[in-house]
């Protein structure tokens, strides 16, 4: 994906420059490089390999989907791939029973867990991105003493495993009296996400040509104006990319929600984990539970995935 988007960036950048800035002369080397990159990327071999990888990576998900529609005893007795033979033989192989169990046969309704998941996820995505944008701008475009050391220190936090922070963090929350509220989960996710977010956004920000920012300064723009009117628009794809990652991570998170949360704040993942029953005997319901909780991230990913491949600096003066 990295090569792809870089290639796309190069091509998009090249064409954009010729279109929007007719006066700028595009170096023949760049067009040449772009054509080569395009030729390389459209090789039939590469396509074949990409298709094979895509199929291999999809098999487990397909298996889960098929399993989630099979009756309990079939799930326990045979693998999901046997349905194709059985269906051919005309046997009834599918049922909605697991989904009925997962959705309705519980003393707790799934809706409140869905709501909790959203209430947890949205701020847990917005808070770190907001803070990281401000911090990354500071690290990238404001000179101050000890900037590099501070930046390395922030990024170094990334290597601390979150498991060892759980008990001290929870103790702090209990002492602060916010235990059991959504704040503990929002703050925890923000804390865990910030080092990587700052690092990534800083690197994207550093890629913005210095001349662009300096030109804005010469025109009299302050940091706030530069941040909102020059940097932010260019960073939209980067923000979206990190936002999707953070969204998926928080939506799928079980550990933080379980440790920091309370019954009032538990998201869908916690409910799905409980579906197997006290002694794990109802594990056949898990596949349908997993699919119910996958629906939202799937929608988010599919509707936003173009940001992953869209060029970072499409439309700017890079090159």
């Amino acid at each position: 994906m990295t090569t792809q988007s870089a290639g796309a960036a190069a091509t998009a950048g090249g064409t954009a420059v010729t279109e929007t800035r007719g006066t700028t002369r595009v170096s023949p080397g760049l067009t040449e490089r772009a054509r080569k990159a395009k030729a390389r990327l459209t090789s039939p071999w590469a396509s074949a390999i990409a298709v094979i990888i895509a199929v291999l990576w999809t098999i487990p998900t397909v298996g889960l989907l098929v399993t989630s529609f099979r009756p309990e005893l079939d799930i326990r007795r045979s693998g999901w791939w046997t349905v194709f033979g059985d269906a051919f033989a005309g046997e009834p192989v599918f049922s909605m029973r697991n989904y009925e169990t997962a959705l309705f046969e519980s003393s707790t309704d799934l809706i409140s867990f869905f709501v909790n998941s959203f209430v947890i996820t949205l701020p847990a995505v917005v808070i770190p991105i907001t803070i990281a944008l401000l911090a990354a701008y500071g690290f990238a475009w404001i000179d101050f003493r000890g900037r590099d050391i501070l930046f390395v220190a922030v990024f170094a936090l990334q290597i601390i495993p979150i498991q060892i922070t759980l008990i001290p963090l929870l103790r702090t929350y209990v002492q602060g009296g916010i235990n059991g509220s959504y704040w503990t989960i929002w703050l925890s996710h923000s804390i865990f996400a910030l080092p990587l977010a700052i690092f990534l956004l800083h690197n994207f920000m550093k890629d913005i040509p210095r001349s662009l920012v300096e030109a804005a300064r010469v025109d009299g723009a302050g940091h706030v104006k530069i941040f909102f009117q020059v940097v932010m628009p260019l960073l939209t794809p980067a923000i979206a990319a990190f936002g999707i990652f953070q969204f998926l991570w928080v939506w799928n998170d079980l550990l933080v929600a379980l440790v920091m949360g309370s019954p009032d704040t538990f998201p869908l993942t916690v409910r799905v984990a409980e579906m197997a029953g006290s002694r794990g005997g109802d594990w056949h319901v898990l596949s349908s539970g997993a699919f119910i909780s996958m629906v939202v991230p799937l929608i988010v990913f599919l509707s936003l995935q173009r940001y992953f491949v869209r060029g970072l600096l499409a439309g700017s003066v890079k090159g």
Binding site: V115, Y182, D264
Partner: peptide, 21 residues
Amino acid sequence: LALSLTACADTGDGDGGTGDG
């Protein structure tokens, strides 16, 4: 930021819970 968070907290409260047996 604080404003937007408060708004979110309001929508979240009162919902959720594990219900009764």
